[in-house]
Design a protein around this nucleic acid. Sequence first.
DNA 1: GTTTTTAGTGCATTTCTCGGATGAATTGCC
DNA 2: GGCAATTCATCCGAGAAATGCACTAAAAAC
Lengths: 400, 400
Amino acid sequence: MNCRSLPHVSGSTQRRGSLERLRTGNRRAVTGLLATEGPLSRADLARGTGLSRTTVSSLVRDLIESGHVVETEDRGTPYKGGSGRPPLLVRLATPSGGVAGVDVGHRHVRVAVADRSGAILAEAETAVDVDAHGAGALDEAAKMVRAMARKAEIPMTDLQAVGMCVPAPIDRRSAQISSGILPGWRDLVPSEELERRLKIPVVADNDANLGALAELHHGAGHGTSDVIYVKVASGLGAGIILGGRLHRGTTGIAGEIGHVQLHEDGRVCRCGNRGCLETEASAPRLLSLLRPAYDDDLTTERVLELDLLGDAGVRRVLSDAGRTIGRALADLCNSLNPEMIVMGGSLGSSPAMVEGIRASLDRYAQPATAAAVRVVSGQLGDRAEVVGAVALAVARVGAI
Amino acid sequence: MNCRSLPHVSGSTQRRGSLERLRTGNRRAVTGLLATEGPLSRADLARGTGLSRTTVSSLVRDLIESGHVVETEDRGTPYKGGSGRPPLLVRLATPSGGVAGVDVGHRHVRVAVADRSGAILAEAETAVDVDAHGAGALDEAAKMVRAMARKAEIPMTDLQAVGMCVPAPIDRRSAQISSGILPGWRDLVPSEELERRLKIPVVADNDANLGALAELHHGAGHGTSDVIYVKVASGLGAGIILGGRLHRGTTGIAGEIGHVQLHEDGRVCRCGNRGCLETEASAPRLLSLLRPAYDDDLTTERVLELDLLGDAGVRRVLSDAGRTIGRALADLCNSLNPEMIVMGGSLGSSPAMVEGIRASLDRYAQPATAAAVRVVSGQLGDRAEVVGAVALAVARVGAI
DNA sequence: GTTTTTAGTGCATTTCTCGGATGAATTGCC
DNA sequence: GGCAATTCATCCGAGAAATGCACTAAAAAC
């Protein structure tokens, strides 16, 4: 049987078959190398891409002409230390226009405006009761994007994409929030709502995924490729990076580790089940455990301070929470054999919690698996989500 | 800081940068299409690849000359039913030479010899006490490979690679078995041992990974890309396919779901821990549960028969085991949001077990996650491992 | 000051693809 | 039976892109 109706291969961006596609590919190789390695000479680029010096020169000439790349003033040193003509370094031109990242938490909205390479130019945070007022939070976010764009001196018309972080899983197909966790957001498609307000393309993803992306590119996970990012905040979620790419799952809701059931007859969880991990080890739960013995206004910030000061009670509670989370992570590590676990969220930087997780991994994971995985705190703190949102926007418009 | 020591990009197979690479890429597009769609005319290939008819003609001429492709005798019908010159169909030449797959279980060795497209030509199984006699099992495997090659009329010198299945995780770096589960195999590098006996390149992987690969390409998972294959046999393991590719993990030992701890004070497991999933739901455990009520010589085959006949006791035990395994899978599904779970191994085809797993997923996984995942029995039965081993060997020598 | 070493750039050459023209083989219509 | 229509395959010239080589430039080493 012949297959008569083979679909025409869409020529991706422009033409069909391939010859200028070869050139675009090579151009991409050059810009990609410049993006990851910083300023390089043409000779470096030739070595790095495997292309001939002639070709690279020609490509760079094109790229300079089109404004994607500029020659720097300072010359580097020649190849192996010593002699030879010093190279002329080129770097990516700071692309015109910019992007924005919006992080919508349960109680705050944080916005950053960045240039198209992802370098953040202006950033601000406002306290908003997002859970109660979904639409109001989006109004506020739109206002802040305009304000930050003004501060960064980027006209709104030059803003090319917005990345958005929401504290709930998003269904890949409908772009809707896929569970009833955010009561004030029912039947809202967050990306569309913000897009309607800003008239700029908006892409949304959940907080754990974006935190994972941020730590992978600009934080603790730099240089690794199999990372589990765990966000411990009002909820508990994971962003899973496998082979250097975010794993979103079939319908886009992967990473829901907060609802592993620990106790058949445990506390009732907002998900409707009982005894979920989230009911035992989320920030609100830990605060409610600690407050009777400390202060009714105890905050997570204060808890972290006490942890660093060596307060035994706080360290015990955080360590126990780490052990509890570590139980679940041990199973996940047995399945995925990752390279690193990055702890994020308001309590992710707690040393006691990291120790607790480490202890559980050593206790419950297979020895070879436990030995392969490092457990660290994230480096971006509560900025992780917004940095990830910016990264998402940068990815959307393309690095160049 | 400049990056002076950029690694030279190895020109993959032959030359350097990219011009004949363009052609090799196009050649691959043609052969790829032929591999998936069967015999096609040059015009079909042009439509399918997006290349021009001229280019395809030229590529096909080269491929015929190099023996990768042959023209068929029968002509097809022209494009849209009706008139026009009938096309000359071409198909992939049956590649010369062959590959072998070796499945080493705990109590058997199974060997298949296939042509280079993966079509199995000869296959046999022998009972061997592998656990006790590691070296003897390898001798037997080598003998069987020679015998099957003879039966398939492929001279040993034409056998180009061997894929090997071992019932234990393999460390990616050392190629050694990474836990003490197989006592008779300590300090053996299985692939090297078999390679020494056969003088043919051997690649090894564990049973769950190869079963997953087999079901993905030639079984229940055909057409999907995020699949968890669960093997229920003397142990319990998983092969995890994400994005159409096997996820092996940082050190290659991903998929160890058998050692999720269910009960702090449960049975002692061969891994040294207590209360592992494997102690509750492996084939030996289920048989030991059933034997007192049935027959001291009860086999897994008989158990499956009784399941299909509707025997209440057997169905209850298998269903409970499925629920237990499903508990662990629910957590994994929450993390990975897969499209399908394929049950393999000697008990994977049990309907009662599949029902039990389904029940646990619906009970313990997030509703959206549970709704997204299908649970099915594998289609390859106890041949899955050897089919996967052949697929591994085919991948090793390249599809063409 | 000469040699050595590395960087960057023209020019001729080769490789590869594309589009149109040409020939081939079959169906359908008169 | 003959002729148009249709589809398939190939030949030929044009154009695009990468490479190798030769050449100049610029600095350090001797």
